[in-house]
Nucleic acid binder design. Structure first.
Lengths: 351, 351
DNA sequence: ATCCCCTTGTTAATCGTTTAACATGGTGCA
DNA sequence: TGCACCATGTTAAACGATTAACAAGGGGAT
């Protein structure tokens, strides 16, 4: 116990200036090698393991870390294949630059909180010692995103409406790819299942569509655009983008008397849940009902899902690069998507 | 651009002391509400978003973050279901305490580096602004673990030989459960596939067993203990605990003229890869060859793997709790394991 | 012998906060 | 009236480092 060992105490013990000790750890070339090894020896003897991280970070203004926030909450993030692919991409870019990845949790911000209460619920966002941050999938005005951008850190988003750096895909165009595919197959009764913070399975009235995640909104718009005039599109919440919430949504849709002939989900996870429920109910997916996903994560291939592939890993890699090396990276990038047709879609059944 | 807004500049602009501004953000009760709102108004006007994270962290000595290091490297971590379950547990414990999770990368430390070079490769470990850290699966003398413990931060490990806090399972006992199961089924020719930094597929001679991951070593010991005297055990490296490396190991084992009747893998990921290779080669898993895994991640259930279940999520949760609330948590915990028999094991074939 | 430059070390300012300890004026109470 | 106490601000000392700018001494070239 007792007193903590600092740069200064090492300097005093070695009879040199603090600058010398600092140089011994940071700039070997500024010191003669004998001085340096003497200092390091004293440091080791005192149990000094190097400059304090927080102090260093204050003084230099660099944290060697970038932050990430998640729409669905930290706990769920590790079950979401989309998030994992993104994290994988981030990690790949970071690994070689000795930069840590800070996963920042935040309490859900419910309506009607005071300024102070909001601040408090975003505590971790304010306190994270980072050089920049990534916010993927958020609305521009989400409190956590706002808190982050107020910190005047470099921030990379995935929203086309946001100012500043971003990496994104053309969600609307991707939606059209799905819509056109379904239209070509003759589907006119389409349900769209979108990940959303609201109750899974409940219908989303047009008035509430503005509150959807931006990517969901755009994909939905694209689907609508590509379907012919007579088509009916109903929108249902898929909840947290989880297996369980997807099943709830699917159950409510497939139980309806006027069951849709096609169900377009916002993610492969949700789509796989729909396929599962449909199969259990004795429906032949691709015949009695068509299902599409989004992302093309590994799950999609093994489930035989028709989906839209997006380069998630690459997205993460580029987001990190934008933060690490802004000068050699464009500040806005739109990545390509591709319709991948598998067995989960087929011609609309005759009624 | 221009000059940065600090607590001081806000104080000057508002005509109050810096203490007042600090209190406005941290201790509402120390200020009259009119003073407080005046200060916050000035702050907003100047674009001040709250106290600087690094400075705060230096001054208070708290970072509100805990670190994690991974044996297999950050990039691979997100593909490993074991790691994901652990992270999920950590995140769950953290979510309610407004603590961030810092994933720390480190360059591989190869032999024969100078002191300075080692330090440099562990740069992120030294620079991470954290209050404590988790190191799961490491040898006690791994450079990254050593660097972390020298920082005199609370550190939670999973090693029974380490001093200090740890959460672990009885790997040796778990190994015996597998060994006994295989012994009961009549297996006498057993191969053990262990995740290890060395070349996947290569044999691990007894002399090198000391360099294995500690958990591997203990499980191996347990398996050996439970098998009858006449049994032969050969040990093979499974590489990075990945799908691909597992297939390499499996191929080399199954191609051998004296193919083992049972293959015990160190993880479900490796075991699943073995099952896949065996199936492709036309072997009936559970008849011609038996395969066991470890962990009981979701993959195991869907593959029909016989395996040993360990409470990974719980492990993560407890590790985080030990760091967050050391006073109300025991400092050493051993969690239970359970043999789960499925279809991948069966009686040894007659030769 | 002079000048210049290079190497190696020191001085001291600064990074942006937090918080114990102290002042000050007003209230409640005897 | 006097005293204790409370609420509300301020003062000023850390927290632990980095790094320009400077100083001193030693060669090497001319």
């Amino acid at each position: 116990m007792g007193v903590r060992v600092t740069l200064r105490s090492v300097a005093e013990a070695a009879g040199v200036s603090t600058a010398a000790v600092s140089y011994a750890f940071n700039r070997p070339d500024r010191l003669s090698s004998e001085m340096r090894s003497r200092i390091l020896a004293v440091a080791r003897e005192l149990g000094y393991s190097g400059p304090d991280a927080a102090a260093r970070s204050l003084r230099t203004g660099r944290a060697n870390a970038i932050g990430v926030i998640f729409t669905t909450g930290l706990t769920y993030a590790f079950r979401d294949p989309y998030v994992l692919a993104l994290l994988g991409g981030l990690a790949e870019a970071l690994a070689h630059s000795r930069t840590s990845l800070v996963l920042i949790p935040f309490a859900p911000v419910v309506a009607g909180l005071s300024d102070a209460e909001v601040r408090e619920s975003l505590d971790a966002v304010h306190r994270a010692v980072i050089d920049g941050a990534v916010a993927d999938g958020f609305t521009d005005d989400h409190p956590a995103v706002r808190a982050l951008s107020e910190r005047s850190l470099p921030l990379v988003r995935s929203s086309e409406t946001a100012a500043g750096r971003c990496v994104l895909i053309d969600d609307r165009q991707a939606g059209r790819k799905i819509g056109r595919h379904l239209a070509d197959l003759g589907h006119r009764e389409v349900a769209v299942v979108l990940s959303s913070p609201r109750e899974p399975g409940c219908a989303v009235p047009p008035a509430d569509e503005a509150a959807l995640y931006p990517y969901s909104r755009h994909r939905l718009a694209g689907i609508r655009e590509a379907l012919p005039a007579g088509a009916r599109v109903r929108v249902v919440s898929g909840g947290n983008n989880a297996d369980a919430t997807g099943r709830l949504a699917a159950t409510s849709l497939l139980a309806a008397p006027d069951r849709p002939t096609a169900i377009a989900a916002d993610s492969d996870v949700l789509a796989a849940a729909v396929v599962e429920v449909a199969t259990v109910q004795g429906l032949r997916v691709g015949h009695d009902v068509s299902v599409t996903g989004f992302d093309d994560v590994p799950l999609a291939a093994s489930t035989g899902l028709t989906t839209v592939r997006q380069p998630i890993h690459e997205k993460g890699r580029l987001m990190a690069r934008m933060l690490l090396d802004p000068d050699n990276t464009p500040s806005r990038l739109t990545l390509p998507t591709e319709l991948v047709v598998r067995s989960s879609t087929g011609p609309a059944p005759n009624r």
